[in-house]
Simulated assay, not measured.
Amino acid sequence: MTMRSFNRLAWAVVAGVAVTACSSTSLRVGGAPDASVKNCVAAAARELRVPPGSIAVDSGSTPRDGVYTINLKVGPQGRSAVCTTDENSAVLGVVYKRPE
């Protein structure tokens, strides 16, 4: 294998990995399982009475074992909301954050 063909192979592998990463449908945020994120979006749409498409996942965290906090942006104004789930991805609550 020549250096030129090795470089082509290496770039092809890198490009393939990049395409795979970009096309992933994973919603994993801040350590929260995908199911927690999806359940939060669905619960926020229901509780806050907005279409699911108007909810964007902003960030997430795991403040303590088994409880996940997912920050959401709601509506065209991007109003902040927070959703919490347990270790089984069951939604514990969804509330709007107070403006700062």
Rank of each mutant, 00 (worst) to 15 (best):
D58M: 07
R49E: 15
T85P: 06
R79N: 08
R79I: 09
I70N: 05
T85D: 02
A81C: 15
A45Q: 07
G75T: 06
Q77L: 10
P76V: 14
L48E: 12
C83L: 11
V41T: 06
Q77R: 12
C40K: 00
A45E: 06
A42F: 02
P52L: 02
T69A: 00
R49P: 01
V57D: 05
L48R: 13
G75F: 11
Y68V: 04
A45R: 07
R49V: 14
A43L: 06
R46F: 09
C83Q: 08
N39C: 01
T69N: 02
V50P: 13
A45L: 05
G66Q: 06
A81K: 12
A81S: 15
P51W: 04
I70V: 12
V74Y: 10
L72P: 14
V57G: 02
S54Y: 09
N39Y: 06
T62L: 01
I70Y: 00
A44N: 13
S61Q: 13
E47W: 00
V41E: 00
D65R: 05
V50C: 13
A44G: 13
S54M: 10
Y68S: 03
G66N: 05
Q77C: 02
A81H: 06
A42I: 04
R64W: 01
I70C: 03
P51F: 11
I55E: 10
V57P: 00
R79V: 15
R49M: 13
T69F: 00
A45G: 11
V50N: 14
A43Q: 15
T62R: 01
P76H: 09
V57S: 04
S54Q: 15
I70E: 02
A45Y: 07
T62K: 01
S59P: 01
T85N: 03
A81L: 12
L48Y: 09
G78W: 00
A44Y: 12
A44C: 14
A43S: 15
A44T: 14
S80V: 02
A42C: 04
A44Q: 08
G66C: 02
P76R: 14
S59C: 00
V41C: 04
C83A: 13
T62Q: 03
A56W: 11
S80Q: 10
D58S: 06
R79H: 11
V82R: 13
L72Q: 05
C83K: 08
L72M: 04
G75I: 07
S80T: 11
P51Y: 11
S80N: 15
T62V: 12
N71V: 05
G66L: 07
G78P: 02
V50K: 14
P51I: 11
G66P: 03
D65S: 06
Y68K: 04
R64D: 02
G78A: 03
P52R: 10
I55M: 10
R46L: 12
I70D: 06
A42Q: 03
D58Q: 06
G75L: 01
L48T: 13
R79P: 10
V67C: 00
S80F: 11
S61V: 05
S61I: 01
V57K: 04
D58V: 07
R46G: 07
P76S: 14
V74F: 10
V67R: 09
G78E: 11
T85F: 01
Y68P: 05
A42Y: 06
I55C: 09
A42N: 01
G75P: 06
K73E: 12
N71R: 10
S54A: 15
G60Q: 08
L48K: 08
A56K: 13
